[in-house]
Amino acid sequence: MSESTEKKMVRLRSSDGEVFEVEESVAKVAKTLQDMLEEDCADAVIPITCVRAPILTKVIDYCKDQVMISSSSSTTNNPNERTEQERKAWGQKFMEGVDSSTLCELLVASNFLNIEGLLNLGVDKMVSMIQGKYPQEIRDMFNVVNDFTPEEEEEIRNQNAWAFERDPYYKKRSSSK
């Protein structure tokens, strides 16, 4: 870790003005930042306008971990590399306790910064949240306002009625949860 002081640092500013200083290698996990750094247009603070500080903290955590994995796997051959299972477990732990609004912000951030791994983690979580849910449940979960009139709803329902009917085992599932 003694090298780290010599490493080039990059400063990032979140939408609410907080400035984060991270190693260049960490910032480079984000493809968007990598492109900026490679074009040398990031001497000053890089503003990340669509990401709030708490979200950026989480994103940086993720990037740091990625750097740690890749550095350890490059020096020694195999032992520290995560197996598929471990990676899955780690991802689950990372996304644990993330609520729906944070999740959305994380997705926006990872999409903007172009961090594929984080985006996939978020998408996985989102998929597990939406799967098997009914429109109203999804609205409740993500605070989406229903901007359909009842007539429009009826129309949509009629277009593909089979998809909206309750699953035969739905009640059982929800009660067992």
Partner: peptide
Amino acid sequence: YLPTKDSIRTSMVG
């Protein structure tokens, strides 16, 4: 990533 059934359901969200 969702089964098509679920993705159709989302059409009523908004």
